[in-house]
Design a protein around this nucleic acid. Structure first.
Lengths: 196, 196
DNA sequence: CCTACCGATCGGTAGG
DNA sequence: CCTACCGATCGGTAGG
């Protein structure tokens, strides 16, 4: 009997991935057990292995799916003809929107990836460093074009990425802040701080 | 034979706490085993229990020690006669300095506290919420006094706290950024974004 | 998708 | 500070 629910557009594997993201976020990857995941899906633990290969594979799928989406967006922005500030704004908005709409997966990709096994751990780390490096180049270009204040580009990127990543922690605390208001005010804060 | 090293000013328990903070940060609380901690200290696992009560007690000690230090600083700032902007600046600088100098402990207090057992989990959560709330009041006061831009105070606090917390992740990537330069540029970015 | 089960590892205790 | 050890739980497999 197929107990794992899967809607018209989701495979059973996707249903497992969705619950896994929630569980990994809530308890942390190491403290989350496959038995808990099975219970959440209404099956016995061994049954999970009909859909997935291993616990670490679940983590891998979540992390690289999210990483890929951020990279696709980055490439799109890089290839646009916008000003540097507009490019940075676009990236900040993408981070905020994706974090708010894909909360569990983004959290896992940002905080649990250190539990990836090699060679995936190193691969993911390189992903991050490359992403960061390309943002630094965007900032440097903006400084050269006199659009952006001459702060250390690395620090600027760190500040921006850290700020948007923080949404994973605080989201939901305040129901009286609308997502759109949050997005606009955070963008305003982060851009006003560096716009010349 | 006393194998756990302890300098003149550190008890053995403090030596254990220091190694525990490093281990909890590197592997995460759940994935870090007491056997690994023992090896790092050059003793057998059961010997640890001569100095500490339990694994969870180590986590508790680290988290509440750091939380207390941040609170002590907050109270000092609240009681000062500085402008609102100067108060916020002071708090940002304290976060950056403490994070850079007490890397492992601050990381654990910020990211592993969710593994605290009740009632300490709730107590710590209340600590955080209270801290956040009091920063919001500082921001609100600054807005009323026309020192600070009228963005949503909650979003402003979230942005600032998230940005400084991000230092735990990125610290050490770039040797070519001096701590003082990092601090000044991040302060500049975060304050310029909200100063009226 | 289940029952039955395995080897490994965990935090911690007993006793010295 | 050690040796010896325990009950619990882990990820995962065998076989159906």
């Amino acid at each position: 009997m197929a107990k794992i629910k899967s809607g018209n557009n989701t495979t059973k594997k996707e249903a497992v991935l969705e619950k896994a993201a929630l569980l990994f976020k809530t308890k942390g990857y190491s403290a989350a057990s496959m038995r808990e995941l099975a219970i959440a899906l209404g099956v016995e633990a061994p049954s999970l292995y009909n859909y997935i290969g291993s616990k670490t594979e679940l983590l891998h799928s979540i992390c690289f799916k999210i990483a890929n989406e951020f990279f696709v967006n980055l490439k799109k922005v890089e290839n646009s003809t916008d000003s540097s500030i507009a490019k940075i704004e676009s990236i900040i908005r993408f981070h905020i929107q994706t974090t708010l709409s894909r909360f569990n997966e983004v959290y896992v990709a940002n905080h649990e990836w250190k539990h990836l096994k090699e060679p995936f751990f190193s691969e993911f780390l390189n992903f991050r460093r490359n992403y960061e490096k390309r943002l630094i180049i965007l900032i440097e270009t903006g400084i050269e074009k006199n659009e952006i204040k001459n702060l250390h580009p690395y620090v600027t990127v760190l500040t921006i990425l850290s700020a948007v990543r923080g949404l994973e922690f605080w989201h939901g605390h305040k129901k009286n802040v609308l997502p759109q208001e949050l997005e606009n005010d955070m963008v305003s804060h982060l851009l006003n701080g560096i716009t010349k």
